[in-house]
Design a protein around this nucleic acid. Structure first.
Lengths: 179, 179
DNA sequence: CATCGTTTTGTACGGCCGTACAGGACGGCC
DNA sequence: GGCCGTCCTGTACGGCCGTACAAAACGATG
């Protein structure tokens, strides 16, 4: 089992390093060589564990993606509840939220069937969920502002305790949308 | 003069096309060939007008950068006035604000003396300006949320009249920061 | 018409990317 | 010891990027 454990261990180390680098610079701006250097391997070794590069992103994103689909599949009684749930989601997955919101699907087209396929333009779905099917210009602006506030607040304060961020941002997001 | 005018005309067309493409996909994701295809030229022709690719970004950003430096150099009586000024700035330059906030300086290191150098991490300066030198965790979260709300609201609603966006977002940003 | 500068093209190069493939090192198993 | 799967390395390839450079169109100028 030693061999297997070692493999899973480096696998995890690669995953962790990649998550940090992606969060810092974005998906496309990080090469396999960068990740390899961060964990002290060659880029070929990294490629061995995650055959297409997409798998790295897919595996990093997977838990957040599941949560997101659950969120989008749930019913909420009003925008306050929805914003509360969204903020909780964003805080819980703040290390990877940048990948979900921007990088993936924005650059190269996700192959059909991959996790990226389901997540594609999920931001738009969140927006529709919040703003409704046929929002007024003012509502559109406020909805995007609220989503942007949560994302920005979550990404830029990774060192602040999660409870503080979540509570503060929930209040802030509601304040935006009701302003 | 016809020759010169033609040159300036295509220069402008390149600039306009590049601005749109950058706003849509981000700086690094747009190649010279993409821009060339958009204006019906070869990538070499584009490179002729803007020798290092950086010049394209620099020229597109220049007016916004000047405005930004003015903003950072001004005094404000309180956070409301600052947020009002920042929102006005963001709306005025909404076509290029994505470049200022993310792409430039984020990916590859800007060469010293280039415009990107001065703009580098300007977001942090805006944050300090809003949150103060030694903000509490809650203030930090609210400040980033306010800035993110404005940015998101501005970028995602380019088809909404500027006055509507500006007024709505100013109110929203203040609501966030005071929430 | 000859000449010049400007603009555009075509071709080519070096660099970095992700990927493929062959081989070597190491431990588990018979 | 022989064999096998796992893990990692080295080398190499094709593709796309930005860039350099020679040459060709083209109008303007004399």
């Amino acid at each position: 089992m030693t061999t297997l454990d070692q493999g899973n261990a480096t696998r995890s180390r690669i995953l962790a390093a990649a998550r940090d680098l992606f969060a810092e610079r974005g998906y496309a701006a990080v090469s396999l060589a960068d990740i390899a250097a961060a964990v002290g391997l060659t880029k070929t070794a990294v490629a061995y564990h995650f055959h297409p590069k997409d798998r790295l992103a897919a595996e990093i994103i997977a838990p957040a993606a599941d949560d997101l689909l659950t969120l989008l599949g749930s019913e909420f009684s009003g925008h306050r509840e929805f914003l509360r749930a969204f903020t909780a989601f964003a805080v819980r997955h703040r290390a990877v939220i940048r990948l979900l919101t921007e990088d993936i699907g924005g650059a190269d087209s996700a192959p059909p069937g991959s996790p990226g396929e389901a997540i594609r333009e999920f931001g738009r779905e969140l927006f529709i969920r919040l703003a409704g099917p046929d929002p007024s210009p003012g509502t559109r602006v406020r909805a995007w502002a609220a989503l942007g506030a949560v994302q920005s607040g979550v990404v830029k304060t990774v060192d602040v305790p999660a409870e503080v961020v979540e509570e503060t941002l929930t209040t802030a997001a509601v304040a935006v949308f009701e302003s």
